[in-house]
Amino acid sequence: MKIPNIISGVVVIMIAGFFYSLTFQFPETATQDVGPAFMPRVYCGLIVLLGGLLIIQGFRDQSKKEGTERTIGYALATMGFVLLYLILIPYLGFYLSTALFVFALLVFSKVRNKMALISVSLGTPLFIFVVFEKLLKVAIPLGSLFS
């Protein structure tokens, strides 16, 4: 039995089912074409079919489980850092948030070299400023604190 396949099978079937149910709000068109609901329904139907297959495979699979390391926490923590970073940008502006984010992530990944910590967390926003704001004229958000 391969649990991940069963889980993913169930998840995709649920997603497809949810989208399928939404298509009933779509209007039936009077024109000759198949209407807005047709394609999404085809996709959802096929996903349900293949998801079912995945579940069956999951139950039948006899291969042994590979031992995986429990490191997923670090990836989740990184996502947390990014989420915080994205929440901060509208308030602190892009440059300050970036410096903080880079610094925090470096510390988190056990970089202790002071030169590296400072130069990378200041250099990254500087690079963005020069390349994106100055050369490419992208309007980088300054944040509500500073405008």
């Binding site: 990014v82 509208p90 970036t98 880079v102 992530l105 990944s109 990254t124 490419l136 309007a139």
Partner: peptide, 24 residues
């Protein structure tokens, strides 16, 4: 080093997606 490259890549992802249409 990966530890340095990762935050820089994430920042680039953020700026890159933003500059596409200046849409957060």
């Amino acid at each position: 080093p990966k530890a340095v490259l990762i935050p820089m890549i994430i920042v680039l992802c953020v700026v890159g997606s933003y500059s596409l249409g200046n849409n957060y």
